[in-house]
């Protein structure tokens, strides 16, 4: 079984601005439709607020905004991917989340070195599946950097 994990990895695929991104399935708790989000003042621009996820107050991050992409209004296909990392539970707003695939681990390549693109900071690697190019996001970096900056905010 460990061998299977070592050789293959299950990914949730979602779209931002027509590009395809992926996140390991074990980091995903659930996928939700966008409900009423309550804005929280004095937070980073990409934090859209909080929503009630079955009784748990869950912060929501707009991933377009987080990656420095142009924001768009939400449509019927817009989804919130609830991800969990250690004690943190956060929702990501994405344009579309419609696929689960298994890919061989060795098909993942290190991210191309692009200087000056904000998005590149949060990428773990890229994987080519047929004609599709999946961008693997790095949850730890997306959430951790925030932690640090908010801590600095307290001290300052």
């Amino acid at each position: 079984m460990t061998e299977a994990i070592a050789s293959e990895i299950k990914l949730i695929v979602f779209q931002l601005n027509t590009k395809e991104y992926a996140i390991p399935v074990n980091q995903v708790r659930s996928i939700e439709k966008v409900e009423h989000i309550t804005r929280v003042p004095h937070t980073d621009k990409f934090v859209k607020g909080v929503l009630n996820l079955r009784g748990v107050i869950t912060p929501i991050i707009d991933l377009r905004s987080r990656f420095g992409l142009e924001e768009s209004s939400y449509s019927d296909s817009t989804r919130v991917i609830i991800v969990g990392l250690n004690e943190l539970e956060v929702g990501f707003i994405v344009d579309l989340a419609n696929d689960v695939i298994d890919i061989p681990v060795n098909s993942i390549e290190p991210p191309p070195e692009v200087v000056g693109v904000k998005e590149a900071e949060y990428i773990n690697g890229v994987a080519k599946v047929g004609k599709r190019l999946l961008i693997l996001i790095d949850l730890e970096k997306i959430l951790k950097i925030e932690e640090r900056s908010s801590l600095q905010g307290i001290e300052g």
């Binding site: 929280v40 909080v50 107050i57 869950t58 912060p59 004690e87 959430l143 908010s150 307290i154």
Partner: peptide
């Protein structure tokens, strides 16, 4: 309820 571990120390 708390705002969770991600949003700590939101002003006021």
């Amino acid at each position: 309820k708390s705002l969770g571990n991600y949003l700590t120390n939101v002003f006021a």
